[in-house]
Design a protein around this nucleic acid. Sequence first.
RNA 1: GUGGCUUUAGCUCAGUUGGUUAGAGCAGCGGUUUGUGGUUCCGCAGGUCGUGGGUUCGACCCCCAUAAGCCACCCCA
Length: 459
Amino acid sequence: MSEIKKIKPALSKGTRDFLPVEVAKRNYIFDTIKSVFRKYGFEEIETPAIERMETLTGKYGEEGDKLLFKILNSGDFLKDVPKEELAAANSQSTLKYIAEKGLRYDLTVPLARYVVQHQENLAFPFKRFHIGPVWRADRPQKGRYQEFYQCDADIIGSTSLLNEVELSMIYAEVFKALGIDVLIHFNHRKVIESLIAVIDKPGFSELIVSCIDKLDKVEWDKIESELHAAGLIKSETDALYNSIIVKADTLWCEEDIRANAAGEEAHKDISVLLKVIGSSIPNLVYNGRLARGLNYYTGIIWEIVLDKSSVANNNISMGSLGGGGRYDNLTEMFGAKNMSGVGISFGIERIYDVMEELNLFPATISQGVKVLFIPREEEMEEFAFQQAHALRCDGIAAEVYLGNVKKQKHFKYIGDKHIAYFVEVGGDEKASGKFRLRNVQTRDTQSDLTLKQLIQLLQ
RNA sequence: GUGGCUUUAGCUCAGUUGGUUAGAGCAGCGGUUUGUGGUUCCGCAGGUCGUGGGUUCGACCCCCAUAAGCCACCCCA
């Protein structure tokens, strides 16, 4: 025997293993969301984890490019690098020669590629959902990983505001089904646009959006000094304060906002949204402070937060559980124009944490098989196996504990896997064809059951 | 990219001002006990104390370097 080198078992930074019970809980969330999506006519798609680097680069800004996971070319990855490039030893400019592929950074850019590439074969408006892992070479921290799941639903190729209505309804329905009390905040990018026009600082729009976005976490004083440092004067920051803090709840209706063409357009959109929804979604609330960091949004935007006024959510502090919005020209960079889209996203990892904290997972999801057959002796295993198989043929989940072990092992196994019943199988049972069924929880015992009776009882 | 903290058994962690042979609980394995139920008790196995230097008669402990992980910024989900 050659010596086996021991390797310390460890994960790559920012990644996780999931225990069976965790996978069951995650699937519960996925299945709940999927069933709502399907009910509204969304179809599931898949795309590869690996995309060509040219598909990925330049879509997420300079920061985003740095956070892309690159895949080293197979084989002799240095053979295509020009000599002068090698000599220069510039890792940035050498990159394109040694890494042609990368891991997807989100599900949105792959969607844009997908839609353009398959447009002849898709039914428009194209309503799809996509759940899958994405990868970012970010520094991990609490609730942030290098590999995590995104869960998106988008409608491509329709400008109707009824799409926004539909997505609002989906948000409401999903969180209701999961049992989480949330507020569905919404705003309109053109309200923000108009606000920036009102204070006449067009060059600062990105900064202002990012400051508004931070309002929930950072004190106004700090934001104000950041804006002053950037060159805004006191009267301008005061005007901003008046709008996004004082009038945040009614910003879309304010006269100075509506005086602007963009503001008026936003007013019209929001009016339609509210009129159609009426009182059917009471937790859909306007929030003039909502901006969302991503700069491709052009219309209605959403963000989901825990409802602090709900008694259930006692003192849980948690960022947004989802977000989305309308974007124009998503597909333009892949050569298809005039494809407006609107989409929403669910923050699975945070939803999981909230549900864990509030104990919202139903107890049934961690349940194992219905019944465990325990052979009393090793010679009984085959007979027990046949009985278990008979149960399975009638749709009852059953297992046989194989291996000659101590009794306490059996019960540990039953407990660990949350098995509901057990049947011990020995020579007597084999000879008589009668079994004794015991309920693990209640300890109720039913004796002298034929296999047929056993099946009937468990069905 | 910036800063802080941590690193001792598979996991969670003790470890005295620097002193011989590094400990516990959980998990694993074996036995024991329980008048057919997760129990009790006992034992076994498992560690180059992240790594590399240094100080010292002597280092898990002090110093330097380095790596990894976590946490907080930036940014984002």
